[in-house]
Amino acid sequence: MYDPAGIYAKHPLWYNNIDGVGELGMGFMLLGLGLLGWLGIHAPKGTFWNQGYANLIFLGVMSAVIHYGNKAIKQRITYSRTGFVEYRKRDTVWRPMILGALFAILFSFVLKEALRPHRDLKTLAAVVIGLLFTGSYAYSIARTVRWKWMVVPVLALGFLTIALLPADLVEAVANHSRASGMPPALLGICLLSFLFYGAVLLVSGAISFSLYLRHNQPPAEEAQ
């Protein structure tokens, strides 16, 4: 049944990305993870980027930059222009945790299937990762702002292109290595997918941020 109150209740959740900062954070994270993976594979053995602690330091710094950067933008720009919203723990902790767990289960299923030698590992991985990323973008971002539906076909086309890349090229991206016990083709697909999706999110978030600044002026100074 049509329930306008139920639909309207979703507006505050959509507000979280009104300034595009959510996408920027996610884009930085995926690009950072892609870059970290790339460095770990391509850096000569024994260098800083091959050490386990390097990953921890990199992830720690990246998470801190994203968390505090997001907070600073919200406090200095968003809250003073369009207001402050504090979300319920259910929406900021539990739901993302459940979604993350579901994603991990799906991803491990892909990995398990992909490790069977007779399967077309590269295409299967690219299609599943592409569907997950494109679906999550459409569900959580595109349906909140109409113009972002234009990004969905771009994502689909990009992931299709990644799926159709020659296996040699994909394995070369992973430097033909088996880091973390993953086959090179799967590693290459993961790296390319993370870098591509991260870049798209950054561009989409940057456009949202500039549109937000243009359409929401800063508050007028108080009269002295």
């Binding site: 309207y8 507006h11 507000y15 207001g83 979300y87």
Partner: peptide
């Protein structure tokens, strides 16, 4: 009804947010 529905989905908001929304 709009105000209560908006508040239902969150922990708390400020006046400016409601004004804007």
């Amino acid at each position: 009804l709009i105000i209560v529905t908006l508040l239902y989905a969150v922990e708390r908001v400020d006046f400016l947010y409601l004004l804007h929304e």
